[in-house]
């Protein structure tokens, strides 16, 4: 893959978010567990927010990414790899979301190697950091909801 401009990178990122949104939407439709269903719906909204943020950057309304620096717990690395089933639970849904954010992060990290210039590299770095932040946030929710007594 090759990017020629920042606009191209951002367009790609927007498509990624849209894809993720559709993925969560599909899971929300199919889930029988009310909590999982609501969680996936919430994630659809989250992805929309990300998409909007990227578009704002693209149109220059927003100058860049601004991660909060949520500390990493490296939970995703430890937990198993659940797959979607109709009776999927919130716990599994959260792990899937954590993994998705991690994959996205790794993808942007990987793409950095193909960046032609420093500008492009910086924007890919920003995208990677953003995904890492999302991953940490998911881990934090997992920690608060699932592991209340651990």
């Amino acid at each position: 893959m090759e990017f020629n401009s920042i606009q191209e990178v951002l367009d790609f990122a927007v498509r990624q978010e849209q894809k993720a949104g559709r993925f969560y939407g599909l899971m929300a439709e199919k889930s029988t567990d009310v909590v999982a269903r609501k969680f996936f719906r919430e994630m659809v909204g989250e992805e929309r927010k990300h998409e909007a943020k990227l578009k704002a950057i693209k149109s220059g309304k927003l100058s860049g990414f601004s991660g909060q620096g949520t500390p990493q717990m490296n939970l995703t690395e430890v937990l198993g790899e659940p797959v979607f089933r109709e009776d999927i639970t919130l716990q599994e849904g959260l792990i899937i979301a954590m993994r998705a954010e991690k994959d996205a992060y790794e993808m942007y990290e990987g793409l950095k190697a193909f960046a032609r210039d420093e500008e492009l590299k910086k924007i890919l770095e920003g995208l990677a950091a953003e995904e890492l932040e999302h991953k940490a946030r998911m881990e934090s929710i997992y920690d608060q909801v699932v592991q209340r007594e651990n």
Partner: peptide, 24 residues
């Protein structure tokens, strides 16, 4: 024993849809 969650299978869908949150 890392944590416990609510169970809503007994609850009518229309009620659950309204009262349960995305965190259970």
């Amino acid at each position: 024993a890392i944590g416990q969650k609510g169970e809503f299978e007994w609850m009518p869908e229309e009620v659950a849809e309204k009262v349960v949150t995305s965190r259970g």
